[in-house]
Computed example of a mutant assay.
Amino acid sequence: MATRDVIFPAGRRALYERNRYSPAIRRDGLLFVSGQVGSREDGSPEPNLKAQVRQAFANLNAILAEAGGSFSDVIDVTVFMVNPEAIFEQVWEVVPEYWGEVPYPTLTAVGVTWLYGFDVEIKVIAAVPAQKRS
C-alpha cells in the first residue's frame, strides 16, 4: 500500500489529530479534502451562518494552499447542509465570493440532519500534483 501524503493546514494539526482523521490526502495528482466546516481555531462553530460558510471556505483554502493549490484546482464539490430549505439561499449568496470563474467545478448538494453543531460542510476533490522537493 502506498504511503499517504497527508496535508495539514498550518496551526490546526492538533484539531485533526484529536478527531482522528486527515484533513487531506494527495494521491496520483488528486487531492481529496475532508469536509470542512466553519470552525474557529478551537474547533467551535462560527455562530453566524454566512460567517460560518466563509470560515468553511477559509479552512478549505488553507488546506489547498498548503498542498500548493487553490480553489481554481477544485474539480468536484460536495456541500452538506442542515435544513437546506431554510439556509440554501443564504449559503449561495456567499459561494460566488470563492467559486471563481467559469468553468465551475461539479457540484452535489446534500441535505443532512446533523453536522456536529455546524450548518454547512464543504468537501472537495482537486487536481494538485505533488510539488518537487529541493
Results as ranks from 00 to 15, higher is better:
67 A>C: 07
127 A>S: 10
27 R>S: 13
26 R>I: 11
106 T>S: 15
110 V>F: 09
1 M>S: 13
30 L>K: 02
92 W>K: 04
10 A>G: 08
15 L>V: 05
43 G>W: 01
80 F>C: 04
81 M>H: 03
92 W>A: 14
47 P>L: 09
43 G>S: 03
128 V>F: 10
12 R>L: 14
128 V>H: 05
63 I>C: 10
68 G>F: 08
27 R>N: 13
27 R>E: 15
44 S>N: 02
27 R>M: 10
66 E>T: 11
107 L>Q: 12
32 F>S: 06
17 E>R: 01
65 A>V: 03
6 V>F: 11
72 S>V: 06
65 A>S: 15
85 E>N: 05
30 L>F: 13
69 G>I: 01
22 S>K: 00
63 I>W: 08
94 V>P: 04
73 D>N: 15
76 D>I: 00
18 R>E: 15
100 G>A: 13
32 F>K: 00
44 S>W: 01
116 Y>P: 00
91 V>G: 07
84 P>W: 02
25 I>M: 07
101 E>F: 13
134 S>L: 14
13 R>P: 03
39 S>L: 04
48 N>A: 14
53 V>L: 07
39 S>N: 09
123 K>I: 10
74 V>T: 12
133 R>L: 15
1 M>Q: 07
76 D>A: 10
12 R>A: 15
129 P>G: 12
126 A>L: 03
64 L>K: 01
126 A>N: 04
80 F>V: 00
71 F>K: 01
41 E>G: 10
130 A>F: 08
31 L>H: 05
96 P>A: 15
126 A>T: 04
50 K>P: 03
38 G>L: 02
111 G>H: 03
123 K>F: 01
125 I>T: 14
73 D>I: 02
2 A>P: 11
47 P>E: 11
51 A>R: 04
67 A>I: 04
13 R>L: 11
75 I>C: 06
121 E>K: 00
20 R>F: 12
117 G>Y: 07
113 T>N: 14
121 E>S: 14
93 E>P: 00
103 P>M: 09
18 R>H: 11
116 Y>W: 09
118 F>W: 02
115 L>Y: 10
51 A>C: 04
111 G>A: 05
18 R>F: 11
9 P>C: 11
13 R>I: 09
75 I>H: 04
53 V>N: 06
27 R>P: 01
56 A>M: 02
89 E>T: 05
47 P>Y: 10
33 V>I: 12
21 Y>V: 03
3 T>A: 14
45 P>V: 05
31 L>I: 04
107 L>N: 07
12 R>W: 08
81 M>K: 01
99 W>M: 13
113 T>Q: 13
18 R>M: 12
11 G>F: 09
113 T>F: 11
108 T>M: 12
117 G>L: 02
133 R>D: 13
50 K>E: 15
